[in-house]
Structures are given as structure tokens and as C-alpha cells.
Write a protein that binds this DNA or RNA. Structure first.
Length: 308
DNA sequence: CACACGTGGAT
DNA sequence: TATCCAAGTGT
């Protein structure tokens, strides 16, 4: 086994990266045999179902999204149904998925779809991107998964698969780079339907086999072509991967405060909020930012509620 | 571009 | 127990 002692992120892999065409069939074939049966992937799933799932899946695992996604779709079958609700109800129904600003943005996106797009989730990438809460990834994902369009879908799973198979490193950079976009563009099948299949397949491969912690290379359809394996599965180099701290942060306080509001069908008093965090300064700051974000609505006399 | 932004399960 | 990680977006 030859080890490159002077390896840097920009250096060429020790072996030739696999050709695009050599990857398509095994990866898509693997997907056909092993893809999970997720509600938003079923033939009868509409674009709205896909869009709800994409919002919920931003930084939240599939198993926790499943039940909430089902509830949302049953309660708000079309974008206009959600748009007709108060934003507070969206925040409440978001439950404990985390990052509740996503609920607010999905509610706002539903409003924009009802107003500007005749109630239909747009097909066009640029129009999707213009919606609140829809970034580069989500716009591509909705266009590709819901409408079969040909787009570069670069999420954390796909980035990790390409980092290993093509670039030969254990993990992708912290932020998406131009080099990654070039790699993804070079691998994207020319045929539109195949490209959409490829996007879903590479994402699923990263989620189920080419995982962050302990990849199941024995199950991987392209293990024999994988630049990382061929290089001896070298450990991660470079800057430490971004860790998230949580205990004691404003985020934790915001979470506590919002949990109180979600649980109460009626406005809550200042004292009810005061009871969930000891430090009055941090508590006040957290409440302030929740109000700024539109997640909490202050009423008169130190009473608060979810936004109407 | 680095950082804020929730929550909970796995190791 | 501490850390890592999960289909990112907005600033």
C-alpha cells in the first residue's frame, strides 16, 4: 500500500478517479434494490410532500421527520391550506424537530406559493430558490425529486460519497466548495431522468452505506472503484470538523422557552417562562431574539404566545 | 466565510 | 459523560 505522506486537500488522489459512466449503473442499480420506502418518495407523493420533507430533513434525521411529515400532509394537503393557518400553528405542529425557524419559513413559502404560483410548488430552480427557507440544496432537491429535473444535488451525504469515491478523502470540507460543484457536475448523467435517479441514489448511498462514522464498505456497490479505499482509507486531515456546542447556549434557552409556548393553547405569563431558565439576562436575551425572529408574539402585560 | 440556529440518538 | 452527527439556510 502506497501512502502519500505529503497529501494535501488539493493534491491529486493516489489513484485515478473513477469515470462517471463506471459509477452510474452500479450506484443506481444498488438504489433500485435497497432504497428505503419513504413516504415522500412514493409514486403518489406530490411536490408539496417532497417540499415538506426537504424542510424537515434540514439537519433532522429521517426517523424523527417521518411522523411529523405525515401529520403535516394530512392537516395541510396543499400549500394553500398551510398558508391559511397562523404561523404559530405551524410552529406548534413542528413539535420537537428542532430549528423552528424552518416552520416559519415553510409557512411563508406556502404563502408565496399560494400567492405567486397558483398554489403549485414551482418546477423552476430559480423560482424555488426565491422561496423563504429554500437554499441551493433544497431548490435542487425539490426540482429533482418532485419533478425529475436535472440538477446538482449536493447535500452532506452526496458530498461525503464524492469526497471518498472521487477525491479519496474521508470527509468533505466544512463548507461546499467550487471544486465539489465541479466534481458533481462532471458526474451528473446527461439524461434528465437518469440524473434525477442518480441524485437520489448517491444521497441514499451516503445515508445508508457511506456513512460518516462507520461506513459499510462491504455493502458498497462501488467499493472497488473508491479512491479513498484504494488509498487505504486514510483518516481525516486538515481543520477539525465543525462541532456544535449546545449546553448553556442561547439556543438551549430558546428551546426551553418555545417548548413552554408550544405546550400552551393559551398565552403564557412571564413567570411561566421565567421558571425554565435561571439566568435572567440570558433568558431575556433569548426571549428577545425569539420575538425578533417572529417565533414569539409579545402581548401586553408580560404575556406571550405563538404568532397569530 | 464563520457563526447562529434545536433536538435527541448513537458511540 | 462527552462528542459526533443528522437531506441546510440566512446573515
Amino acid at each position: 500500500m502506497s501512502t502519500d505522506l505529503h497529501h494535501t486537500p488539493e493534491s491529486a488522489p493516489a489513484t485515478t478517479p473513477p469515470r462517471a459512466a463506471a459509477l452510474h449503473e452500479p450506484v443506481i442499480g444498488w438504489f433500485d434494490a435497497h432504497a428505503r420506502d419513504l413516504p415522500w418518495r412514493r409514486p403518489d407523493a406530490g411536490a408539496w410532500s417532497v417540499m415538506i420533507s426537504e424542510f424537515m430533513l434540514q439537519q433532522t434525521p429521517v426517523v424523527r421527520v417521518l411522523p411529523v411529515h405525515e401529520q403535516w400532509l394530512a392537516r395541510w394537503p396543499r400549500p394553500a391550506d398551510l398558508a391559511a393557518e397562523s404561523p404559530g400553528e405551524a410552529v406548534r405542529a413542528w413539535g420537537r424537530l428542532g430549528y423552528p425557524r424552518r416552520a416559519l419559513r415553510l409557512h411563508a413559502a406556502a404563502g408565496a406559493i399560494a400567492q405567486r404560483h397558483g398554489g403549485e410548488v414551482p418546477h423552476d430552480h430559480a423560482e424555488l430558490l426565491a422561496l423563504p427557507g429554500v437554499g441551493e440544496y433544497t431548490a435542487a432537491a425539490v426540482a429533482s425529486f418532485a419533478y425529475g429535473r436535472r440538477h446538482i444535488v449536493l447535500d452532506t451525504n452526496v458530498r461525503r460519497v464524492f469526497a471518498r469515491v472521487v477525491t479519496g478523502v474521508a470527509h468533505p470540507p466544512n463548507a461546499t466548495t467550487a471544486a465539489e460543484r465541479r466534481t458533481a457536475a462532471g458526474l451528473l448523467p446527461a439524461d434528465e431522468a437518469t440524473a434525477a435517479r442518480w441524485a437520489a441514489a448517491t444521497m441514499e448511498l451516503g445515508a445508508l452505506v457511506c456513512t460518516a462514522r462507520s461506513p459499510q464498505c462491504g455493502q458498497c456497490p462501488v467499493a472497488a472503484l473508491c479512491a479513498w479505499r484504494l488509498a487505504g482509507s486514510p483518516a481525516h486531515e486538515g481543520p477539525p470538523r465543525r462541532g456544535q456546542s449546545y449546553a448553556g447556549t442561547d439556543r438551549q434557552v430558546r428551546g426551553r422557552l418555545l417548548a413552554v409556548l408550544r405546550a400552551s393553547p393559551t398565552p403564557v405569563s412571564q413567570s411561566a417562562l421565567d421558571s425554565v431558565w435561571h439566568d435572567p439576562v440570558q433568558r431575556a436575551r433569548a426571549l428577545d431574539t425569539l420575538v425578533e425572529d417572529g417565533l414569539v408574539e409579545p402581548l401586553a402585560d408580560g404575556v406571550y404566545r405563538l404568532p397569530v
